[in-house]
Nucleic acid binder design. Structure first.
Lengths: 213, 213
DNA sequence: GAGCACGCTAAGCGAGCGCTCACCTTCGGC
DNA sequence: GCCGAAGGTGAGCGCTCGCTTAGCGTGCTC
């Protein structure tokens, strides 16, 4: 929730839907800790400490440590899905919508890298029920991107041999940004978003010459 | 070291450089356990149990649990680097060498997903010294791929705006295969390798019409 | 065939884990 | 001004963790 995240395209009012205030502070602390050290290497004492509370306070708002991860993961996936839906359902050609989808999705992963890391890489730490729920959200994410690519391919705007495989690769490329992106590195989230949108248009064989912007 | 990994393009004699036999069995058990549950969620008792030994046996061959991860990571990165070097330094055009590099690199990540997962995703679990050593290997990996792309761009074979950014994206795409690839899924490592080689050629704007194979 | 290095085990240590419990504040309603 | 609910704390329980230590069997050496 620090300034870096907000400046870099993150939500200006992140986790606003989490109430009361103490529960939100704990959740934000958990996001930071999970992103830094991973779920299993994070202790409940660490989370409570970051939120300025005693270890016991965590259990007033959350039943277990896993429930914290579950809540983070669900809210994060819903946010990711919303970003892609907005891009997929706006006006414009498949090329424009794919550009919008990739650049905004990448901006979210780069700018909110802390959150995105937890959302994308701690899925296996959830129990079976929670994981199944999150996997359903991921299928919706996949469907949004696949929809754009299918439409572009059907209209002749794109040139794609394997729609499912290409969709997988596009999402994979975007998601992996959360692994390598460095806030102190040479690229801003906006730059990476623009670069990746161009690369993805090339991958789908979009007709417009994105090669020479 | 199971059949699936060997059939799918993995090393037929994996971890042969690790001796004595008991040390290799422990290391193979650790790879499996780390890949399944992650480093921090894996106990030394679990590793020893998989290798058919008592927990104490681990400490005869390795000083700590982290030394196991360090050894796995270094051997894995050396193997990955060797794969890319072989492709980068063979005869042929930049297009041919990039195709070779991507398809073999992807085959390794898909076929040896167990190993690749540990190698690519447990880097943060290492201590500062070990992590620095591994990061040096990763820079060599990056340099091999960047070299091919630079040569293709210089000769006019490729059309690339941002060589460093494109290199990053290509490697990112390949590495993320270890996250999503499923041995029981619909695609073989060879199919993913071929698909990804085609997508990467599109990303670098290779002149040859890979779009219509 | 005695001596011994080596590989391994059974038992367990100190520490830190997730989580609980008894109790303490604060504060709005009447 | 009293009261109960809501939200917090300090202490600590039971457990499992990474790792150690004392001792045992086995096979090689001479």
């Amino acid at each position: 929730m620090s300034t870096a995240e907000e400046m870099a395209g993150g939500d200006p009012q992140p986790w606003a839907e989490v109430t009361p205030d103490a529960a939100r502070r704990l959740l934000v602390a958990a996001v930071e800790a999970f992103a830094e050290r991973g779920y299993h290497a994070t202790t409940t004492r660490d989370i409570a400490g970051r939120a300025g509370m005693s270890p016991a306070a965590l259990y007033i708002h959350y039943k277990t440590k896993e429930e914290l991860l579950h809540r983070i993961s669900r809210i994060g996936h819903e946010k990711a899905l919303e970003i892609l839906r907005t891009a997929a359902r706006r006006e414009g050609s498949a090329t424009e919508r794919l550009t919008d989808a990739v650049s905004s999705f990448v901006r979210w992963h780069a700018g909110g890298r802390t959150t995105a890391r937890v959302v994308q890489y701690e899925l296996d730490s959830l129990g079976p029920d929670a994981r199944a729920e999150i996997l359903a959200l991921r299928r919706l994410v996949d469907a949004e991107v696949r929809g754009i690519i299918e439409e572009g391919a059907a209209s002749g705007e794109f040139d794609v041999l394997d729609v499912r495989g290409t969709t997988l690769a596009v999402l994979s490329l975007c998601i992996d940004v959360a692994r390598w992106f460095n806030v102190d590195g040479p690229r801003t989230p906006e730059e990476v978003g623009a670069l990746y949108a161009d690369l993805v248009l090339r991958m789908v064989g979009a007709k417009s010459g994105a090669a020479q912007k």
